[in-house]
Design a protein around this nucleic acid. Structure first.
Lengths: 339, 339
DNA sequence: TCGTCATATGTTAGCGTTCACATCGCCTCG
DNA sequence: CGAGGCGATGTGAACGCTAACATATGACGA
């Protein structure tokens, strides 16, 4: 299109004229109806091919009153988890014949999220997948659900809300129990920021595992998911010689903790063990390789789309069981020396 | 929408009836025409509000013959760069009044990319932003450009192709020159995979900087962008005691290299210096903190949208200068001990 | 031989907008 | 005081498609 020579795109009528049939027959061919004779179909197909015909989705949406679109709202688009989720939702949606509108909201402000939702509604999405497990969204959902089908991607959904999720609590228990099992008794936690559901769930999993073993929680520091905040937390933790293990709420913070520990002259895992959460691809190749909890974001995305599609079909509120995360043992955690 | 009580969405006609005007007046109000009397406008606005009216984009697109949509095709959606780019394109597009269709193609196969492009064209995007700087796409562009406006996101665009990019070559020169400046004379390169434009550009920048200083290139190993491949390359490099510095084509590979070096008993940077590329957020908090080359993906996205919009408007082929990357010096590289 | 029915195709209307144009007041000016 | 013009609003058609119904064609049994 270097020169603007694009005549109007061909319509069904053009195809029909070329094939010598009515536009309705073209419609039937395009929609795979079986009430078309083989040779007629071939002629139509040939005409479509010759003209480069492409069905106009707007016209179709207008008359069918269905947009065929699903929207995904997600935060932190630059991170591994959300990025993977988005890709997987997109792929699953395509496969199911839906267009997916990916709507990243870069900064976590209610206003920008509301704008994003407005945009999604303007696009007439048939369902909204809410990949924003932040408290400030829980209120939004009730209101939104009156307008459109909603699927929350959420590890601790309010009752009666359609949702899918990965069991963050269980993942945190896995990580903490592992540290307990190898003899640690003073396990610190670098938590995700207040307000994030996943952060809360992971923190509570940590607490629950400790409680079950009658072990007092170690120090607790709140970060903001960033490696920088992990670093700062790690520097603080390094000053407390009684801490022998740290469970960080994600891999980025874990990596920051490790650096701070190193800088303080502490060895990982010989002096202090560190466990992360997420299993980002780089986790296996950090120094030391990071023991962490793997989440299957790809399956999560597929599941979310599946639930959304049945929601559109019959409106039921379906809440499949949370997906189970998995502990990946590498070498950033080791038995407690005095155990 | 727990119960499917949704009556048909209100149309302009409904608003018009309620406000006691014609549908055309509603249209004028919605489109901000100034040919509407103040009190009429207020009545219409009130009716819109009461009914929860939302303009039907399909109908609008049908009659205006404009979809108001831009598509972004991008690979490796789980990585920092692409994720940031996608978010920034989305935001810039919204701001300019365009809907952005984000189309991640998870696996780098020509077929899946072609499917993605088909989907974009079916969505009647007015322009396609091609954020896939892989050789196999260069052929696609010519063909695609006949159908729709195309903006390549590309650091070494073919002549006459509309594009924006970050100067990968210059970034690599920055990194290599830095290593040269601090006394290294045997600088290895862990390259990105063959076929990727950015990989080629970074490699050539490395070679060019060395050539300019009359220094022989060190060993060269091709990775696949992953930290795993960086690790494998690092293991190999560790066996060559003459290598004192490694320039890796991205941060993930750099981090893999560092781990391999550590495992081989070599210290970074005391024994071997390592420089990466991208400046992912975690780079600053690795151990040791990674010296790397920062790319401004956010600006790149904005620029791409800007170019796309002028392309739609006047069809010109505009190629703004490549954005300049920036060297970020941290501590994974240090002066050569024998320098 | 004719009605009957199935199969293949055509005809018409309408989805919700915008565009082009028509209309209706009302003000201005000669 | 009437022509002319302008500002505000209305009317009708069209965008490209699908849904519902209408029609044509041929096979078949009575």
């Amino acid at each position: 299109m270097v020169n603007g020579e694009s005549k109007n795109a061909p319509s069904m009528a053009d195809v029909a004229a070329l094939a010598g049939v009515s536009h309705q027959t073209v419609s039937r061919v395009v929609n795979g109806s079986d009430a078309v004779r083989g040779d007629t179909r071939d002629r139509v197909l040939a005409a479509i091919d010759e003209l480069g015909y492409r069905r106009n989705k707007s016209a179709r949406a207008l008359v069918t009153r269905k947009s065929g679109r699903l929207g995904l709202l997600y935060t932190q688009p630059h991170l591994y988890g959300p990025g993977t989720l988005a890709a997987s939702v997109h792929q699953a949606g395509q496969r199911a014949g839906y267009d997916i509108i990916l709507s990243p909201v870069p900064h976590m402000e209610a206003s920008s999220a509301e704008r994003a939702i407005e945009a999604l509604l303007d696009d007439a999405v048939e369902a909204v997948l809410l990949g924003v497990s932040h408290q400030s969204f829980e209120d939004l959902v009730a209101q939104l659900a009156e307008t459109v089908e909603v699927v929350m991607i959420h590890s601790d959904p309010p009752a009666g809300v359609r949702s899918v999720g990965i069991d963050q609590h269980a993942g945190a228990v896995l990580a903490t129990q592992y540290l307990l099992d190898i003899g640690h008794r003073n396990i610190a936690h670098v938590a995700g920021p207040v307000g994030w559901i996943d952060a809360r769930q992971r923190r509570e999993g940590w607490l629950a595992a400790l409680r079950d073993s009658d072990v007092q929680p170690g120090p607790e520091i709140f970060g903001d998911w960033s490696s920088k905040s992990g670093y700062e937390a790690g520097a603080e933790l390094a000053r407390d010689p009684s801490v022998t293990a740290v469970f960080a709420a994600n891999d980025s913070m874990a990596l920051g903790v490790i650096r701070a520990l190193h800088e303080a002259g502490l060895r990982v895992p010989q002096d202090v063990s560190v466990v992360g959460f997420d299993d980002v691809p780089d986790a296996a190749y950090l120094w030391p390789p990071l023991t962490t909890v793997r989440q299957d974001f790809a399956s999560l995305g597929e599941l979310a789309v599946e639930v959304a599609i049945t929601a559109i079909a019959d409106g039921t509120v379906e809440v499949p069981p949370l997906l189970a995360p998995e502990l990946v043992v590498r070498s950033s955690a080791a038995p407690h020396p005095r155990a």
